[in-house]
Amino acid sequence: MDAVAAAAALSQKNLLGIADLSPEEIVLILDTAEAMKEVGRRAIKKVPTLRGRTVVNLFFEPSTRTRTSFEIAEKRLSADTLNVAIGTSSVVKGETLVDTAMNIEAMSPSMIVLRHGSSGACHLLARICKAAIINAGDGMHEHPTQALLDAFTIRERKGRIGGLKVAIFGDLLHSRVLRSNLLLLTKLGAEVWVCGPATLIPPGLARLGVRVTTRVDEAVEGADVVMMLRIQLERMEGGYFPSLREYFTTFGMTEARLKRARPDVIIMHPGPINRGVEIASEVADGPFSVILDQVSNGVAVRMAVLYLLAGGAEDETVA
């Protein structure tokens, strides 16, 4: 193989968040994901790329969707996968995250995919592990592969991201999906609007370069992309809004509200959907919905991330 292949590298050994990625790196991941998506269309949906590599899916929070998506991505790249699901009960039993990670590290995995309820848990792991850490959602902080698959889906449908009006609705305070999406979409030049009840808007959100409103119509107006975030029941119990019914009547995405968007608007949702809370069924299942595309694109994007991090570009001087 004497042809000098173009090199593709991320500057970081880990994927801890979109915050660490440059716009060029984001585009590299999306481009690589396009090639990976083609693998998923083949009769034999498997390539030998990560043969002999072990990837541990370390999940401290229940997650069917993200874990399955990572697992399929790993298997399509021929990695050996190990799922470690740890309920909060075993944490109560006394083993710390650091101890758990050191035990897993002793088995020499190439990569650890971590889902954890605490913001920054991936940073903690990255400081102690030689394995590359991929953040599959940490607390209220980031969920970078979700934002990447959202961007991939938008680009696939719209041909671009820069210049689009993207309106995001829901719990802006607790959502890691929101945080990663804001960072990614603004890095790629989208005009981002966020909308939710004032009780669920963190201070300083506008300083992240987005437009903040509590008026759904204003956010939807002329939108190319409408992204709904999941509203969790415990937010109502926490007193952030009075009832699910009132949330839906005030902020839920309905066909009527959607009329203000561009005629070719796409509707996105990271799932799982609360029908009749943040989104009407007619919208979720309607012609503008790309929700299932997001799910299938998730595998391709995660394959791209696994592939690009497997080289382990630990040292930027290695080129």
């Binding site: 292949a5 090639a35 693998v39 497997a310 080289g311």
Partner: peptide, 16 residues
């Protein structure tokens, strides 16, 4: 020759 080196960039993947 993929994954043989412990560190280093990966070759660019293009579409088939």
């Amino acid at each position: 020759d993929l994954m043989r080196a412990a560190v280093g960039p990966q070759p660019l993947v293009r579409k088939t």
